[in-house]
């Protein structure tokens, strides 16, 4: 065992990069759930975003356009879910599961010609001066653009929910859709917009995987990350700031256990891998004493005539 071989600065920097896909997907799902919709199709939207982003980046040679393509792909798929749950008033849980099934199939069909292709590289931002600051420099300022986009999204969502009128409406719709409707808010429109935003974020997260983290297209490459993003939203008790914390914790546990192994520490991997989920349940229990609970209308179907 040689713990000194773990470099804490590099470890923190990797955790930041490793947590980006779940962070993106989770911040999108947070908005969806805050509007009172439970979309379990995150995995399907992520992998669709992964292949759309990949294909478009390869086609155009530009990772930036690829990321946009990934977001659009995820959003388009999520509109199917919106159609089912908001227009056809289908059950959220079942529709989300169907969306994942559909997305996994769709992505592998779309990706058939892209196995073994290398995407155009996404450049790292070399931020002058800031990047040279000892300690903080490598941890905070040595990443690619998407890491900062993800952070900016978290900040944006936080500010939107807390200060803006749009955030107020979103929360009203999520807490009590009947009251929100009575107040004249367009419940269905708000929710469709939220679902599309969630899809776009999940798509971005997927594209980050296929263009930066891995970077390659392989079938089933999300390997369950979308489900972790769902757990993360709960862990964060539907608060933007805590999503960030949670993403670092979830990403951190995984990166840390790999680092501990590399340093020669014999750890029971499966039991450690369980820990984020057990912690999430504990957080739910602790939170129950707190005011911050799940949006009251979460997963309930809304129809104006009710």
């Amino acid at each position: 065992m040689d713990l000194s071989s773990i470099n804490p600065i590099l470890l923190l920097a990797s955790i930041m990069a490793a947590s980006t896909p779940i962070l993106l997907a989770a911040i999108g799902e947070l908005i969806v759930e805050r509007s009172g919709v439970l979309n379990l199709g995150v995995e399907g939207m992520m992998i669709t975003g992964a292949i759309c982003g990949f294909a478009i980046a390869v086609g155009t040679g530009s990772p930036a356009i690829g990321f946009i393509g990934g977001a659009v792909g995820g959003a388009l798929l999520s509109l199917l879910f919106a159609l089912l749950t908001q227009v056809a008033l289908a059950n959220h849980v079942a529709s989300g599961l169907a969306l994942t099934l559909f997305g996994l199939g769709l992505s592998s069909l779309l990706g058939q010609g892209y196995v073994g292709v290398k995407p155009p590289p996404t450049p790292k931002l070399d931020i002058p001066v800031l990047g040279d600051i000892p300690l903080l420099g490598p941890i905070l300022f040595s990443h690619d653009l998407m890491v900062y986009v993800a952070l900016a999204l978290v900040a944006g969502v936080w500010a939107m929910l807390k200060y803006s009128r749009a955030g107020l409406i979103l929360r009203a719709v999520g807490e009590n859709h009947d009251a929100a409707h009575a107040l004249g808010y367009k419940v269905v429109r708000v929710r469709i917009a939220a679902i599309a935003f969630g899809g776009a974020c999940a798509g971005l997260g997927g594209a980050y995987l296929s263009l930066v983290r891995v970077p390659q297209w392989t079938e089933g490459m999300t390997a369950g990350i979308g489900w972790i993003a769902l757990a993360l939203v709960v862990f964060a008790s539907w608060k933007a700031g805590r999503v960030l914390l949670g993403a670092w914790l979830f990403g951190g546990v995984s990166v840390l256990q790999l680092n501990l192994q590399a340093a020669g520490v014999a750890i029971p991997v499966e039991y450690l891998s369980m820990s984020p989920y057990v912690i999430t349940i504990l957080v739910l229990v602790i939170m129950s004493a707190d005011k911050s609970r799940a949006p009251a209308s979460l997963g309930r179907i809304f129809h104006a005539s009710q």
Binding site: V214, A223, A262
Partner: peptide
């Protein structure tokens, strides 16, 4: 087969 985890594992090894 889990590309993201394999990437993390490689990064951890390289950093050490």
């Amino acid at each position: 087969f889990d590309p993201a985890k394999e990437a993390d594992a490689a990064t951890a090894l390289i950093e050490q």
